[in-house]
């Protein structure tokens, strides 16, 4: 906890501006960013669910919105965030049980999950926009 007087400015915890960028660091920050993105999607998901479970007119309107550009972009964004958070989450769980804790393996697995996310972004773009 923060026990120092307010005047004393410590650096922010994960020191983004100080350390050299490495794949595991990018993977860690991206896990937070994708997590926040997924939380922001929850109200939208509730709105979609609400629309789709009421009258047929509501359902059609919701589906039309989902096929509009903002709808497709939201689906693309949440899809990529989900694939990334899912893959890197499994990576974190594996590291927690003691698999791939070496520096070399951490870098390699970070590159793997980033590659999976890049692949997913292309796949969802193809799926939604073509």
């Amino acid at each position: 906890m923060n026990e120092q007087p307010v005047k004393y400015h410590r650096p922010l915890s994960p020191r983004i501006s100080i350390y050299r960028w490495r794949a595991p660091m990018l993977a860690s920050i991206a896990h937070r960013a994708s997590g926040v993105a997924l939380v922001l999607f929850v109200p939208l998901y509730l709105w979609l669910l609400h629309g789709m479970t009421s009258s047929p007119d509501h359902y059609d309107a919701t589906l039309t919105w989902l096929h509009s550009l903002p709808g497709k972009c939201s689906l693309w964004f949440v899809g990529v965030a989900l694939v990334y958070h899912f893959s890197n989450g499994i990576r974190f769980l594996l590291i927690d049980v003691g698999w791939g804790e070496s520096r070399k393996m951490m870098r390699f697995s970070a590159l793997v999950v980033l590659f999976i996310a890049a692949l997913a972004s292309l796949m969802f773009a193809w799926l939604l926009f073509l």
Binding site: Y59, L63, L75, F86
Partner: peptide, 26 residues
Amino acid sequence: SAVVLAFLLPLSFLLMLMVFSGAVDQ
């Protein structure tokens, strides 16, 4: 909670994609 979500969240996302594609109607 992560393990529970790892199983259930992809399911709900897949259902949403199936609704989007028209494979599932109302």
